[in-house]
């Protein structure tokens, strides 16, 4: 049985005035996928995401969410069922952190006790201090505000989460923490996440499904490793690969795939089971050995195995 996509965008064109922001775009996102939309600014990635909760209406084509055309549902009702977080966060400055987080549950008519419990859970999930609940947003740091924004998006436990460059405005250390947080939340909750980012590294690190846009068209759509593989389209490989697409490709391939039956020499470094080929290469470079061991495996990962990834 073919699983029905949770988000189906079929042949959509979006025109703003005279310009076409999206041209005949088709995209399917399955339940539980972490899908990253990447592309230069003006490529239409935000517009594509906003189709899902009808912040943008297609000029042609259809958008289906959970199998239903989004045009058939009242926009506010649809939006309450989909989490939304964005770069500028947009916390309500006159409401406390708890009230901000409880916005959608309140719109859905939850009772106060249930909202309070949910706020507590979310503060814990986002590793925020419970004492923060009664504070106003202006008392928060950029990273804390971003976490509150994500908590607010998750408040009514939506199965779909839209994130528009949610880590764009925070410092690199906080950004790394927040990414790890998102990976954990995705693993724990199994939500379908659509993430807009202009940072290829972020897309490759987080997503299970990467979509590359350019000038309102989808250039590539697939698993991260496929898009930086040596045979990927040059524009996509350039955009995602950074200066060293080969290394980035290796970092997306599991080392376990290159296991060699020969045992590693005694004293060789030991790789974790979820290590990538790039990790294996890094350990080899450090140790100067020609093979590394792997946790719980009799065989080894060898230099020629890593370099054979192409084959």
């Amino acid at each position: 049985m073919i699983a029905q996509p949770v988000i189906a965008i079929e042949g959509v064109t979006v025109r703003f005035g005279g310009t076409e922001a999206l041209r005949d775009v088709t995209l399917h996102v399955n339940a539980g996928e972490f899908c990253a939309l990447v592309g230069p600014s003006g490529s239409g990635k935000s517009t594509l995401m906003k189709l899902v909760n009808r912040l943008v209406v297609p000029s042609a084509g259809a958008v289906r969410v959970r199998g239903r055309d989004v045009g058939q549902e009242a926009a506010p009702v649809l939006r309450r069922s989909i989490g939304y977080a964005m770069q500028s966060v947009g916390l309500f400055p006159h409401r406390t952190v708890a009230d901000n987080i409880g916005t959608v549950p309140r719109l859905l008519g939850w009772d106060a006790a249930r909202i309070a419990r949910r706020v507590e859970e979310l503060l814990a999930l986002l590793r925020l201090d419970p004492g923060m609940a009664t504070r106003l947003p202006r008392a928060l740091s950029g990273g804390q505000a971003q976490r509150v924004g994500i908590a607010r998006a998750l408040a009514a436990d939506p199965d779909i989460l839209l994130m528009d460059e949610p880590f764009g405005a925070v410092d690199p250390i906080t950004r790394r923490e927040l990414r790890a947080e998102m990976r954990r939340i995705h693993a724990e909750t199994g939500k379908t996440i659509l993430l807009v980012t202009h940072d290829p590294e972020e897309a490759l690190e987080l997503a299970t499904h990467v979509v590359v846009l350019r000038d309102g068209r989808i250039e590539a759509d697939g698993a991260p490793a496929e898009l930086v593989a040596p045979d990927a389209a040059p524009f996509v490989r350039d955009l995602l690969g950074g200066g060293q697409p080969g290394l980035r490709w290796l970092s997306l391939l599991p080392a376990r795939g290159a296991l060699d039956p020969r045992p590693a020499p005694a004293g060789a470094p030991v790789l974790a089971r979820d290590a990538s080929l790039a990790d294996a290469l890094s350990r080899l470079a450090e140790s100067g050995d020609e093979a590394v061991a792997m946790e719980g495996e009799a065989g080894s990962v060898r230099a020629e195995g890593i370099l054979g990834a192409r084959r």
């Binding site: 909760n53 912040l55 926009a75 506010p76 009702v77 649809l78 939006r79 309450r80 069922s81 939304y84 964005m86 500028s88 966060v89 947009g90 916390l91 309500f92 400055p93 916005t103 959608v104 719109l107 924004g149 607010r152 839209l162």
Partner: peptide
């Protein structure tokens, strides 16, 4: 704040 208004809209107000 336009961001707050946009967030309100996106959350289904």
């Amino acid at each position: 704040d336009p961001a707050a208004v946009q967030a309100a809209e996106a959350m289904g107000m």
